[in-house]
Design a protein around this nucleic acid. Structure first.
Lengths: 159, 159
DNA sequence: GCTTAAAATTTTAAGCTTGAAATAAATTTT
DNA sequence: AAAATTTATTTCAAGCTTAAAATTTTAAGC
């Protein structure tokens, strides 16, 4: 008994377990950001996307990058802007477009948290060796390819 | 170049990539539930927990199982109850406790969706073989152990 | 037995998130 | 060039989510 399991069911079980793991880890990181830095995951995520991008980012590219709706990006950027950590800048060539970037204060704030965040993540995944990370990368890649989830922001070609 | 990367940074990158993958897949499943069954992920998740549990489930065990707050469980159960898919039942021995279970309608509704949901998940992970799933299970287990995330609901011993 | 503390759930306020509708600007069609 | 379509963003309503406060009931200490 127990050897009898369809591949389909195994995949379902794996997904449920993965989902639960990721939620648990997200909860840990949410708690960490709240307690130690009085901020939230969405704000951190938006700041991270802005920090890592070279130059200001279009609202639409931001929401694509984070895989959230445009309305969501709007509301989180609103809050970061109120906190003085991000600012919107218009694009002269196309008045529909709104660009966002971190302010100097926002960059300093983020880079401070990011150091601590990396340590936290490193602790969470301290059980994974280089070889484990290779395996994980390969597994993720397989699923990404099956579902056409790409890493980069600029992929207009995908139509 | 590019060979130079600390283990800590590799772990961070892996986490960000995993998080993005899981979000993308959740978005797919959310869309599927919305379009094909006019329901939502949280309702499906609660129903799944109730369906899989043998007998009615305490509100607090439900939220522990799903790794969400008690208030969250309350609101989602409220909606399922309004839809006639779940119902609350009091526990005579302890009047503080509220148990929840699926109604007959709720069970039929869920089992219908669940079949289709499993097919959807199977498609999403169609690139993963049995061996891949073994690997994934091992990797998940390592991180679970590091972070003391257990699978079962009944673990009062964890104190 | 009374009081205090602990436990289970709900309520509340604030923020997050989605999907759809609205707005505004650019592009394409005629 | 006017009209129609497409694109970018915001607004909106509804639902999701959290953390903290409030409520109710049970258990523990005195």
């Amino acid at each position: 008994m127990m050897g009898e399991m369809t591949l389909s069911l195994r995949r379902l079980r794996a997904w449920l377990r993965l989902l639960r793991l990721v939620r648990g880890l997200e909860n840990q990181l949410r708690e960490f950001l709240r307690v130690d830095y009085n901020t939230t995951l969405p704000r951190f995520d938006v700041a991270a996307a802005l920090y890592r991008h070279d130059g200001p980012l279009k609202m639409s590219d931001l929401s694509k990058q984070l895989l959230v709706s445009n309305g969501n990006a709007t509301s989180v950027v609103d809050r970061l802007e109120k906190e003085g950590k991000a600012k919107r800048v218009p694009l002269k060539e196309d008045k529909r477009v709104v660009l966002v970037e971190l302010t100097t204060e926002g960059r300093e704030w983020f880079s401070e948290i990011a150091k601590s965040h990396e340590k936290q993540v490193n602790k969470i995944f301290s059980g994974l060796t280089d070889q484990d990370l290779d395996q994980l990368r390969d597994l993720i890649r397989i699923v990404e390819i099956t579902n056409r989830i790409t890493e980069s922001v600029n992929d207009e070609k995908n139509a």
